[in-house]
Design a protein around this nucleic acid. Structure first.
Length: 270
DNA sequence: AATGTGCCCAACCGCGAAGAG
DNA sequence: GCTCTTCGCGGTTGGGCACAT
């Protein structure tokens, strides 16, 4: 059952990287590009496993990395993203140019956790301490669908951290995996509590025109309710103004994040 | 100056997902 | 559909450093 080791451990260095190793790795990647991590160490003349090389490059040697302290804005952004995404460090890192998932994870554990505790906020649940989150407030994005081929839409209604606008986001999931998301700040509900209040609903996928129709009229057409939007039977999308407004969704700005703040497809770093 | 303690962060480990055959 | 390999992610570890005693 055991996995084969990623490399020949007996002949690999471990621990801190030397300047010479760094130089070799940088030179090799400059010449050949990233990827093929397994074969890279041998080709680059490094006595390291591919995994170690990848980590060293991504977390330390990449030229686009931003070194130095986190700014107050970055702090707040991390907190907001963590309240939405949980410990999805790579996704959070994707929203912070020049920062790595490892760096953010370390920073969270050493600074932000303490900062939130000092504010009286539980860093795990983002609720005020002494207040247990209710089951419906579970932030987990995992969903159950009747078929993995069905694209599901998870609607998260939540009240963000104190001082932030209340918003509703839709996170479209494909094959039970977060693939994309769209945020509407036009739906503003009365804030129920000053802390994070997540309500998770699972429904068939809703395309933008249908969603806006739902917002404007409070109902959806029959096709949409069956999850067959964008078919010729969908009447939501026949309205030009709705269509146009859907296409012009680029202007939304949620949590001061510009367009595609939570577009998970754009979060890929590689 | 020596020792103890706590913090920080680079690096490691194990697991799951994705892809290839 | 199954097995094997590779990659990427998140949790954890431990060495080094700063500060306190």
């Amino acid at each position: 059952m055991g996995r084969s080791p990623c490399c020949e451990k007996a002949h690999t260095n471990k621990g801190a990287w030397t300047k010479e190793e760094d130089d070799r790795l940088i030179a090799y990647i400059k010449a050949h590009g990233e990827g093929c991590w397994r074969s890279l160490p041998k080709a680059a003349g490094l006595l390291r496993c591919g995994k170690s090389c990848r980590l060293r490059w991504i977390n330390y040697l990449r030229p686009d990395l931003k070194r130095g302290n986190f700014t107050e804005d970055e702090d707040e952004l991390i907190i907001k993203l963590h309240s939405l995404l949980g410990n999805k460090w790579s996704l959070i890192a994707g929203r912070l140019p020049g920062r790595t998932d490892n760096e953010i994870k370390n920073y969270w554990n050493t600074h932000i956790r303490r900062k939130l505790l000092n504010r009286g906020i539980d860093p795990t649940t983002h609720c005020t301490i002494n207040e247990q989150p209710q089951p419906s407030q579970d932030r987990e994005f995992t969903t159950t669908t009747t078929s993995t081929t069905i694209t599901t839409t998870t609607i998260l209604s939540f009240s963000p951290l104190p001082g932030s606008a209340t918003s509703t986001i839709n996170i479209k999931q494909e094959d039970e995996k977060i693939a994309n998301s769209t945020i509407f700040d036009s739906i503003v509900k009365e804030e129920k509590c000053p802390d994070l209040n997540l309500e998770l609903q699972i429904s068939p996928p809703i395309h933008l025109a249908c969603q806006e129709s739902l917002i404007k009229t409070g109902s959806m057409c029959f096709a949409c309710r069956l999850g067959i939007q964008e078919s010729k039977d969908c009447s939501c999308s026949t309205s030009n103004d709705i269509k146009n407004s859907s296409n012009n969704n680029a202007g939304y700005n949620f949590l001061r994040l510009k367009k595609s703040a939570l577009d998970f497809r754009s979060l890929e770093m590689k």
